[in-house]
């Protein structure tokens, strides 16, 4: 079952297309990593797909009414905004916004508890969310998106700024969500973690899709050289695909 279908999606900034005719699908059970150098159009692709940016072409999510879309896909922006010193529990409960019709009920509280447990944040429940460290705040915001309990989760660089263990734990959470039948799409810069945890990778360059497939098909030495300007060591090991950038070409 496809949770997201894009057909020739184009997003323009002024006249210049920052996403140029990208077609792709995300199905239930997939953890799709969106790769590409800075400015490749990863964020614009996801925001266009969600209908947050004006776009041409078709996106199955953007075609939905706002509340229906909010029940179909959760969005975790790159900017980690927490405007007011609310408690962690209150912040995570904001993920229930699309489901609320009046006051939060037992189902909403249960969803918040599940999200806190998944991110290992039970002990933080009553802490002031603005007083947490950057990494803790990032985990709280991921928990907020999880509490939305949507079939699809879209995240923009969700592991940027986390310590290595927290990065791996977060990738494991996303991979487990995919195994449980959700779909996850995340823009990532860590090629090694993307290779190990994603079920599929989509590589963008200059707004166009240049590769789409299993990690070993996408993370080839040729692709890394032409798209990222890197020469890298890529090896299939007993622990899965290992990608290590070694240097910059040219």
């Amino acid at each position: 079952m496809n949770l997201l279908t894009l057909d020739a999606l184009t997003v323009r900034q002024g006249q210049c297309p920052v996403v140029d005719g990208v077609s792709l699908t995300v199905a239930a059970g997939e953890f799709v990593g969106l790769l590409g150098p800075n400015g490749a159009g990863k964020t614009s692709l996801m925001r266009g797909a969600l209908g947050l940016l004006p776009h041409e072409g078709h996106s199955s999510l953007a075609a939905l009414p706002p509340n229906g879309r909010a029940k179909a896909a959760a969005w975790l922006p790159q900017a980690r905004t927490v405007a007011w010193p609310v408690s962690v529990e209150t912040l995570v409960a904001l993920g229930r916004t699309p489901h609320l019709d009046g006051r939060p009920g037992p189902a909403d509280r249960a969803a918040v508890d599940r999200a806190l447990a998944r991110m290992g944040l039970e002990a933080y429940r009553n802490r002031d969310a603005t007083a947490l460290s950057g990494g803790e705040q990032a985990r709280v915001l991921i928990a907020r998106a999880l509490a939305q309990e949507t079939p699809l989760l879209m995240a923009d660089e969700p592991i940027a700024g986390l310590d290595p263990a927290a990065q791996i734990r977060t990738m494991e959470v996303f991979a487990r969500l995919a195994r449980e039948g959700h779909g996850v799409m995340a823009a990532l810069h860590d090629l090694g973690l993307a290779a190990r945890f994603c079920t599929r990778l989509v590589m963008l360059a200059g707004g166009r899709k240049v590769a789409d497939g299993a990690p070993e098909e996408v993370l080839t030495e040729a692709n890394l050289r032409t798209v990222f300007g890197l020469y890298a060591h890529v090896e299939r090991t007993a622990n899965g695909l290992v990608v290590q950038a070694l240097g910059v070409t040219g």
């Binding site: 925001r47 969600l50 947050l52 706002p66 509340n67 879309r69 909010a70 029940k71 896909a73 959760a74 969005w75 975790l76 922006p77 900017a79 905004t81 927490v82 405007a83 007011w84 609310v86 912040l91 904001l94 993920g95 916004t97 699309p98 609320l100 915001l141 907020r144 939305q148």
Partner: peptide, 20 residues
């Protein structure tokens, strides 16, 4: 009220949660 709560997470996140 509901929309202002959602805006705690920024305009983009709020819009993606169905707030206009």
């Amino acid at each position: 009220g509901r929309g202002l709560d959602a805006l705690t997470l920024g305009e983009d996140a709020a819009a993606a949660m169905g707030i206009r």
